[in-house]
């Protein structure tokens, strides 16, 4: 009782090794991709390569604007590798928050102590979100550092907005995992929910990119909410707030069920 947020701190302390690994992964991706830009994009080589690819593929990957520094960083990292890395990390942590702990029987002991269910859910969710935000911060710092040497010409405000969009998008998957874990206590369901949100978002965005007839799919894709406004070029976009609203909704639903139900033991 002496210090605040015991479960939050325990959660971080239990997973710092993993966080270190994900940090290295994000750093490695950025350090591999971004320094290549001057030799690829600057000379127009990349654009001519993209032009020779099938247009459907280019639209699916979102490589339309790869000829600019912002477009390159967006296509290679934020919209692809970074998205995948943070999604996997977030879904893993989100599944660990309740479902994993419940299924392997450790949650029973914690719940039997002097904490409320809401406190467990809130502090562990906060730990997941903070860890994702940390990875977003790592991306911001590295892109900012590489911006000059790699001739990317990215505005700092737009960079922060894009990292926020990435964190928001992956937090949505993570909170889907937290919610389903809180509702069902099943590990596989929680994993599936988080991965499902990510995949459906990506796929509906990619299909929506193909023709104007299907552009309405963007309205339903969290991936589009994050990136359709091209935040690395244009900065903050109101649709990003839909991600936060989604996170809040998932966590509240998870809490409402979790506080009422039996622990599956």
């Amino acid at each position: 009782m002496s210090r605040v947020l015991p479960l939050f701190r325990r959660s971080l302390a239990d997973s710092w090794r993993g966080l270190l690994g994900w940090t290295a992964g994000v750093a490695a991706a950025l350090l591999l991709y971004l320094p290549l830009y001057p030799s690829l994009g600057g000379g127009g080589q990349l654009q001519s390569m993209i032009d020779s690819m099938p247009p459907e593929l280019v639209k699916t990957l979102g490589y339309d604007a790869i000829g600019t520094g912002a477009g390159y960083a967006q296509s290679t990292f934020f919209a692809l590798v970074g998205f995948v890395l943070l999604t996997i990390a977030g879904v893993g942590w989100g599944t660990g928050a309740i479902a994993n702990d419940e299924e392997n029987g450790q949650l029973e002991l914690t719940i039997a102590h002097g904490v409320s269910r809401g406190q467990v859910l809130a502090e562990r969710s906060a730990a997941v979100l903070v860890k994702l935000a940390w990875l977003g911060l790592v991306a911001v710092v590295l892109v900012a550092v590489l911006n000059g040497p790699s001739e990317l010409d990215i505005q700092f405000g737009a960079l922060v907005a894009t990292a926020a969009a990435l964190v928001g998008l992956t937090a949505l998957s993570a909170s889907a995992s937290i919610m389903v874990g809180a509702v069902s206590g099943r590990r596989s369901w929680a994993l599936g929910a988080g991965a499902g949100v990510a995949v459906l978002g990506y796929v509906s965005n990619a299909i929506g990119n193909q023709t104007d007839d299907l552009a309405w799919l963007h309205d339903w894709s969290p991936y589009s909410w994050a990136f359709a406004g091209d935040p690395l070029t244009n900065g903050w976009d109101w649709q990003m707030w839909m991600l936060l609203a989604g996170v809040a909704l998932f966590l509240v639903v998870g809490w409402l069920v979790f506080r009422r139900r039996d622990l599956t033991v």
Partner: peptide, 17 residues
Amino acid sequence: RQRIGYLPGELHLATRA
């Protein structure tokens, strides 16, 4: 629950701590 001490029948402890 702070006034109760509980030992579960199946104690699963997998933490690195």
